[in-house]
């Protein structure tokens, strides 16, 4: 777990940054029993970026995030955070590094109030920071109105806001988001993406898993496309957005 990062060894492709990424997944292989869900993927997220991770159902997007936040351990390969190996560290210890994970399906605590859910997000601290609480309520005025309501009684969009707010309470440097638009009305999705942009502007790096490729790529700086556990494409977001293969497969153009 020492900083065995190799700072100099970077691929020499044109335009690629040579500084140390905030998060790097190196030749990552992850298994569920005998099923190989990730077959040696390489992903980099630099400080300040929004990186989109796209792919069909079952491509391995959630598995990627779950490995980055310590919920799963890779069989092979490494997870590096600021060049330091963090794979094998349990998720409850990993939060201290400043990685916030908004899980697939929101997963708010149903029998806790909005306020208690947010306080849980700050569990790693002695006490929740009131400034963070104010910040969350400013970003999501809807949550502010529902402070004493139970998480389980919120609408889907409100639950998503709560899940994001909860993660922000842990003061993450890096925010991992797993399909925040899933099952939400377009208007709400737009709101949430606007807020994600705001959060990123305020200094949080974002790794965003989405099936909603066009929204995600409009927000993102770069993107990766996963196909059955491998990286099929990696490029600038604008380039992916223009790529005919991406347009055909993920933006519903041409033959599906």
């Amino acid at each position: 777990m020492s900083g065995a990062a190799d700072l100099t060894k970077e691929t020499e492709q044109t335009g690629e940054r040579t500084d140390t990424p905030m998060l790097e997944l190196r030749d990552l292989r992850v298994f569920y029993g005998a099923i190989e869900a990730l077959k040696g993927i390489n992903v980099k997220v630099y400080e300040g970026e929004v990186v989109a991770l796209l792919g069909a159902n079952g491509a391995g997007k959630s598995t990627t995030l779950r490995t980055a936040s310590g919920m799963l351990s890779p069989r092979d390969g490494q997870v590096l955070f600021h060049g330091e190996r963090i794979d094998g560290i349990k998720s409850h210890d990993l939060v201290r590094f400043g990685i916030g994970h908004v899980p697939e399906g929101r997963r708010v605590f149903p029998r806790m109030t909005v306020r208690e859910n947010l306080e849980m997000g700050a569990y790693r601290f002695k006490a929740p920071d009131p400034d963070d609480m104010d910040r969350v309520f400013t970003l999501f005025p809807r949550l502010s109105e529902r402070r004493t309501q139970l998480g389980g009684t919120l609408s889907g969009g409100e639950q998503q806001m709560l899940a994001i707010g909860r993660a922000l309470m842990g003061k993450p440097e890096l925010l991992l988001l797993d399909e925040p638009s899933m099952g939400l009305a377009p208007l709400i999705v737009r709101q949430i993406f606007d807020i994600l942009e705001e959060i990123n502007k305020q200094g949080t790096t974002v790794l965003l898993v989405e099936q909603n490729a066009s929204q995600a790529l409009q927000l993102a700086d770069r993107g990766y496309v996963l196909e059955t556990g491998s990286v099929a494409m990696a490029d600038e977001a604008s380039a992916l957005l223009a790529d005919p293969r991406v347009r055909a497969a993920y933006l519903g153009e041409g033959a599906a």
Binding site: V95, P103, Y123, G170
Partner: peptide, 23 residues
């Protein structure tokens, strides 16, 4: 705080550990 941890683990252990709760 211990009580919050207990309730969080009861409701969703996986997410509780993402919040830093040692299950």
């Amino acid at each position: 705080k211990l009580g919050s941890g207990i309730r969080a683990v009861a409701q969703d252990p996986e997410v509780a550990s993402l919040m830093g709760v040692n299950i």
